[in-house]
Amino acid sequence: VPARALAAMAAQEPDSLAALNAVIRASEPLVPGATQAVLGEGPIGAGIAFVGEQPGDQEDLQGRPFVGPAGQLLSRALREAGIDRDRAYLTNAVKHFKFEARGKRRIHQKPTAGEVAHYRWWLERELAFVAPRLVVALGATALLALTGRQVPITRARGPATFEGKPYAGLVTVHPSYLLRLPDTARPEAYAAFVADLRQAAALVAEPALGAAG
């Protein structure tokens, strides 16, 4: 029962990111089929943390976040925006891959609001241990995980305040959105995405960032 499992996890009160990750690794996926939990990656104290939706097929197989096609696009955009991926923290709102099998292919399925809520406990503690100054929500699922509210990205895009959180926020699209666009629309949308990331880099460079939480 997910609620009981969640209560058991909360009772453990891990006192470090490593201890939290041990709990995640030992936990059953909320939906069956995932190979492994995919943990966040990056240094404690990273200036910027990026939160995506959930691991994809390649992430599930490799056990690392943002290594598939969307992750490769994110890496390229980060370089263009002047952000060192190795110095940022990357994670997902949901830690296990949810998919539908079609032949030999595993087709990504969007997590439900209930599944996102199940993983919020982990995400909140994870970000508390990392203590970034700015958290970038990549897409609507990440925004739901960070705020508990479903808001269209078109309305929320840009700098954001995540109520009660000690870090500043910025909302943008998930890189997988760009991959789904027609070729004619992709260059403009990609340029807007890079502009958002440049804004994130500029925000985290401001001395007063996150002072008012």
Rank of each mutant, 00 (worst) to 15 (best):
A81L: 10
A10G: 02
D86Q: 13
A3G: 05
A205T: 02
P207C: 13
Q109K: 09
R79M: 00
V173R: 14
A192D: 14
K110R: 13
I44G: 00
V130I: 15
D86K: 10
R105G: 06
L209D: 11
E124D: 15
I107E: 09
L30P: 04
P187K: 03
W121M: 07
Y167W: 15
A202D: 12
D196C: 07
T147D: 05
D84R: 03
L138Q: 05
A140Q: 09
E163N: 11
Y167E: 00
G169F: 00
D196L: 13
Q199F: 01
R85V: 07
G164P: 09
F99W: 04
E13G: 05
A113M: 06
A202T: 05
A49W: 06
G52M: 05
R125T: 03
L203E: 12
A26H: 03
E188N: 05
P111C: 10
L178F: 03
V130R: 03
L209V: 08
A212L: 12
P65L: 14
E206N: 07
A201P: 05
G33C: 14
A128T: 09
G114D: 15
P55S: 09
P175G: 11
A81N: 08
A46F: 01
F97E: 09
K165T: 01
L144W: 06
L17D: 00
A88L: 07
A208H: 07
G114L: 12
G47E: 01
L203P: 03
D196V: 07
L73V: 15
Y119R: 11
H108V: 07
A93S: 15
Q199S: 08
L144F: 13
V67H: 11
A70S: 15
I24T: 07
L209S: 07
H108I: 04
R85H: 07
A205N: 12
K165P: 04
V204S: 01
L30F: 09
Q54V: 05
T161Q: 11
R102M: 03
V31I: 13
Q62E: 11
A10Q: 12
A145G: 10
A81F: 08
L170C: 02
F193R: 00
T161N: 10
T172H: 08
T172W: 10
K98D: 12
N92H: 04
V135D: 04
A201F: 01
M9H: 10
V94A: 09
A49D: 10
G40S: 06
V130S: 03
A70W: 05
A205W: 04
T91Q: 02
Q150C: 11
V204I: 15
G148N: 12
A202K: 12
E41L: 15
Y167N: 03
P32H: 11
A201R: 15
T141L: 08
V1A: 09
V173N: 12
A192Q: 13
V194E: 07
G82C: 05
D86C: 05
R105H: 11
A11C: 05
I107C: 04
D60I: 11
A189F: 02
T141N: 08
A156E: 14
A26V: 02
H118C: 03
S75K: 14
L179R: 00
K165Q: 04
L146K: 09
A128L: 00
Q150G: 12
G52W: 09
G56F: 04
F129M: 05
L73F: 12
P29S: 09
T112R: 10
G148T: 05
